[in-house]
Computed example of a mutant assay.
Amino acid sequence: MRAFKHLIYGGLLAAAISPAMADDGEKIYKQGGSQPGALACVTCHMPDGKGMDAGGFPKIAGDSAVYLSKQIHDFKKGLRENAIMLPIASALTEEEIKAVTQYMSSLDKVQVPEITRAKTPEGLGEQLAIRGDWSRSIPECVACHGPGGVGVGDTFPPLAGQGAKYLAAQLHAWQQGTRKNDQNDLMGHIARSLTEEEIIAVADYFAGLGK
């Protein structure tokens, strides 16, 4: 009976905390964290979370909270190098990371068309996206990131509707080793196998979806 009472109490406590955490997440996103270095996310990622590609700031709206939290921790660890995100990530507390990533995840996703591998690719970018180039051991992007690049679970983020400048910058980062937070160096291998023309083409392709 005592254990049952604890379960009931725990459930009520969680229900009471969740709205507060959501409010905290929105506050952090719009006003910043408790430490001076934790600048407001809205500054770069915009009020709707759709980002600002002219500055290379990505769309984060609707992404998995688990994925977003991992990226913040990876900036802290130096697995992703970024002069803007390093001090911000380092200044956020664990509670703030959890709250703000849950808020980001709650923002409306970009709506994208359904594209399957049955489609005949048009152009270099779409060819790489839905067919890859197996002669060079380059898998199609949709094999991991889902049909049309919509994203899969907590590991593979959406590509569709993401900014072209940001996507190209990440492929360059994997090429150069300034981003090394992918499992088994999968993205590192793929990025190093791509030409500059191919990077631009596939980045432009995914950026053009969902508009």
Rank of each mutant, 00 (worst) to 15 (best):
M1E: 12
A3F: 11
H6T: 12
H6G: 05
L12V: 14
L12W: 13
A14W: 08
A14L: 15
A15H: 04
A16W: 11
A20K: 14
D23K: 13
E26F: 00
K27V: 13
I28E: 01
Y29T: 00
G32N: 10
A38E: 09
L39N: 11
C41N: 04
H45L: 03
K50L: 11
M52I: 05
G56T: 03
P58S: 08
A61V: 00
L68A: 09
S69G: 15
Q71M: 13
I72C: 01
H73T: 13
L79F: 12
A83Y: 06
A83G: 02
P87S: 04
I88Y: 05
A89H: 06
A89C: 10
E94V: 03
E94Y: 01
E96K: 02
V100H: 07
T101Q: 11
Q102M: 14
L107R: 06
V110H: 00
V112N: 05
T116S: 15
R117S: 11
K119C: 00
L124T: 13
G125R: 02
L128M: 07
L128V: 04
D133Y: 04
D133W: 04
W134G: 02
R136H: 06
P139K: 08
V142L: 13
A143R: 08
A143D: 06
P147T: 04
P147S: 02
G151Q: 06
G151C: 09
V152H: 00
V152P: 00
G153T: 07
G153N: 10
P158H: 05
L159N: 05
A164D: 14
L167I: 12
A169E: 14
Q175D: 11
T178G: 06
K180L: 00
N181F: 10
D185Q: 10
D185L: 12
M187V: 05
H189A: 09
I190P: 07
S193L: 15
L194V: 04
E196Y: 01
V202T: 02
A203V: 02
D204M: 03
D204T: 03
G208N: 06
L209F: 11
K211I: 05
